[in-house]
Amino acid sequence: MKTVFQLGRRAFIGLVAGAALTMAAFGPAAAQEKIKVVGIYTVPIEQQWVSRIHLALNAAKERGDIDYSYSENVSNTDYERVMREYAEQGANLIVGEAFGVEKPSRAVAAEYPDIKFLMGSSLPPVEPNFATFDNFIQEPAYLTGLIAGAKTKSNIIGLVGGYAIPEVNRLMNAFIQGAKETNPDVKFLVTFINSWYDPPKAKEAAFAMIDAGADIMYAERFGVSDAAKERGVLAIGNVIDTSKDYPGTVLASALWHFEPTADKAIAEVKAGSFKAADFGIYSFLGAGGGSIVVDEKLATPESITIAKAKEAEIKAGTLKIEINDAEPKSTK
Rank of each mutant, 00 (worst) to 15 (best):
K320G: 10
F117G: 00
A59E: 11
E46F: 01
A19E: 09
G237D: 00
S253T: 11
G289D: 05
L123H: 01
G120Q: 03
G158Y: 11
K203P: 11
Y112K: 03
F5W: 01
P124G: 09
I323A: 10
F12I: 13
E72H: 02
F12M: 13
K180N: 09
K315D: 05
A17S: 14
F284T: 12
R84T: 10
K116P: 07
F207Q: 15
A214Q: 11
E302P: 02
A312S: 12
E167H: 00
D211A: 12
S51C: 08
I306D: 14
N76I: 04
M172S: 15
S253I: 06
G14Q: 00
G161N: 03
E230A: 14
D67I: 11
G158I: 09
A202T: 04
N129P: 07
R170I: 11
P328Q: 09
A19T: 07
K103R: 07
V43F: 04
S303A: 12
S69V: 15
F274K: 10
T22D: 11
I115D: 04
I35P: 05
L285D: 01
G90K: 07
G100I: 11
A148H: 03
E167G: 14
A141K: 06
N194A: 13
P184G: 14
S51I: 01
G120T: 10
M209K: 11
E72P: 06
S283N: 09
Q47S: 15
N183M: 14
K308I: 09
A131T: 07
Y197D: 15
F99R: 13
G149I: 06
S75K: 05
A59C: 07
E302M: 08
V50D: 14
K297F: 09
F26I: 15
Y41N: 14
L15A: 15
L189V: 02
F12P: 01
K308V: 09
L171P: 08
T152F: 05
K308E: 14
D198H: 03
A31W: 00
G8E: 00
L251I: 07
